[in-house]
Design a protein around this nucleic acid. Structure first.
Lengths: 156, 156
DNA sequence: GTGTTTGCAAAGTGTTTGCAATTTA
DNA sequence: TAAATTGCAAACACTTTGCAAACAC
């Protein structure tokens, strides 16, 4: 329903390319380091997510991709896996729309453009925006991270 | 379920105070200016929202308050009204959690602390954080607004 | 009167959960 | 074989919608 913009970083490695039989030791290693058993389902999803360029996905979308790639995974497992990857630091959840979760393969500090009209989510490199001193958090709390979203609107 | 933090701004005018029979011409005027007929339901919700200090509410919460105040409004109408108020510039929707919408009576430029553990949402005045030059938006788009959320975690 | 608004109940969306069957180490 | 993982279907929380009755101007 919503189009999630692929990030035009370096090159255009497609997921077809990513899902060929070439070695995927890197992805396997990432799972192990996150303490997750490399099951068929998790490997499928990890390859779809991490073997191409950085991207943003919804659960629904990733579910469709796994199916299209010929390795169907149940939607419940996609949700579970996305959360396990997020807990393991492999993904970052981006909240821009109530009622839909986006997961970002770029876990480094960076920001986003979000167009509510089209649903497109685009990365902004961390050092493209300078944020001054942050105010002290309420007593007893510590800052976990700072999310900055620039909401944009496409001109008709 | 989630506690939405009241903002400790100036004084502590309770909603009980707000719902007494004192004149509410200001609220009535706000509705008219937003092009909304001042129906009983809209007046009830507007008084709950705007006659106290600035605050954040969910639909569910506001629905409960109207009921407690003795002016029940159906939940569907609360949702519709919150969106009409938002469209009319009387409220601002804050997205911090997928699956729940928060509405902020403070429509000026400002930021938020959000504690996902407690659900507490707290305002940060706009000029407490300096944001440097923004990057140019993608071609054909214009910047609508910038949302900055500092995610915090209460120390156990 | 005429168009707007309301409330209800039903439908919708995206997400999570319980649990038996399967898979991994 | 013991523990972790999966898939299904049902349950969930929140939100939106269709439509007849009630209301504002």
């Amino acid at each position: 329903m919503l189009a999630i913009m692929r990030l035009p970083l370096r090159g255009h490695q497609t997921n077809e390319t990513a899902m060929t039989a070439r070695p995927y030791a890197a992805v396997l290693d990432r799972l192990r380091k996150a303490g997750l058993r490399p099951t068929r389902q998790r490997l499928t999803l990890a390859r779809l997510l991490f073997e191409g360029v950085d991207r943003h996905v919804t659960a629904e979308q990733l579910h469709g991709e796994a199916e299209a790639a010929g390795f169907p995974v149940s939607l419940a497992t996609v949700y579970n896996t996305l959360h396990q990857f997020t807990d393991g630091g492999l993904l970052r959840e981006v909240v821009v729309e109530a009622g839909r979760s986006y997961f970002d393969t770029n876990t480094g500090g960076h920001h986003h453009f979000f167009d509510a009209g089209t649903g497109a989510l685009t990365d902004i490199p961390g050092d493209d925006i300078v944020i001054g001193d942050l105010p002290a958090p309420p007593a007893g709390a510590e800052i976990e991270r700072v999310d900055l979203v620039i909401r944009i609107r496409s001109r008709a």
